[in-house]
């Protein structure tokens, strides 16, 4: 967490392999991703990292199920496996009745739930969520956080949030506070 301009998004971009550090290393599971060539980095992201963005950023021309399947498709998983997992994930986020609906027919909260399903469907090592509740009303935000908490346990996938939303912080097991690009606090909670 941290105020605007503290470097939260930059930090997420660095560990997500979207930006390269000007100095230092980014080591994930023994791999220094800051030295990877672009094509290897694309592959690394595809296989290891899930993303949830503030503005949902679903592919507007694809249905909810196709959006959730998309990363698995890039991973070249079988059609049957994709189909099964996409349905399962949409069920997990409470959208089993919206499988064939396109994003523009979903509310903001529903879109963000599809984005969460998409990020988790390919079973990444961790998911980066950049202010995922920023555009949601209270009910949708609570609903989303409940889902994410449950999936964190059930799917055993680490979720890393950048946020200044107190509702998110209250559920986090570890909170790192950034100020002006520096770690000012690192707290762990047993939740």
């Amino acid at each position: 967490m941290g105020p605007s301009g503290s470097g939260k998004t930059t930090f997420l971009n660095l560990i997500g392999g979207l930006d390269k550090p000007t100095q230092g290393q980014v080591v994930i599971d023994g791999t220094d991703i800051s030295t990877l060539k672009e094509s290897k980095l694309f592959d690394f992201r595809l296989r290891n990292i899930g993303f949830v963005f503030q503005s949902y950023n679903l592919i507007p021309v694809l249905t909810a199920k196709e959006n959730v399947s998309f990363i698995m498709l890039l991973q070249k998983q079988s059609k049957e496996a994709m189909e099964k997992r996409a349905k399962e994930m949409l069920e997990q986020v409470g959208l089993s009745d919206k499988i064939n609906v396109r994003p523009n027919q979903l509310s903001g909260g529903q879109q963000q739930r599809v984005a969460v399903a998409r990020a988790l469907a390919s079973k990444p090592k961790f998911v980066l969520a950049d202010e995922p509740t920023a555009n949601l009303d209270t009910e949708s935000a609570f609903n989303l956080l409940d889902i994410m908490s449950r999936l964190n346990k059930e799917e055993n996938i680490t979720l890393i949030f950048s946020t200044h939303d107190q509702r998110v912080i209250e559920r986090a097991k570890r909170v790192i506070t950034l100020v002006d690009g520096e770690v000012s606090k690192d707290e762990k909670f047993d939740r």
């Binding site: 694309f42 592959d43 595809l46 899930g50 993303f51 963005f53 950023n57 592919i59 890039l74």
Partner: peptide, 16 residues
């Protein structure tokens, strides 16, 4: 551009 950026972020290669 934003949408294409997302596609690349989640793993779609530039060539694709």
């Amino acid at each position: 551009v934003n949408e294409l950026g997302v596609l690349m972020a989640i793993g779609m290669k530039r060539l694709q």
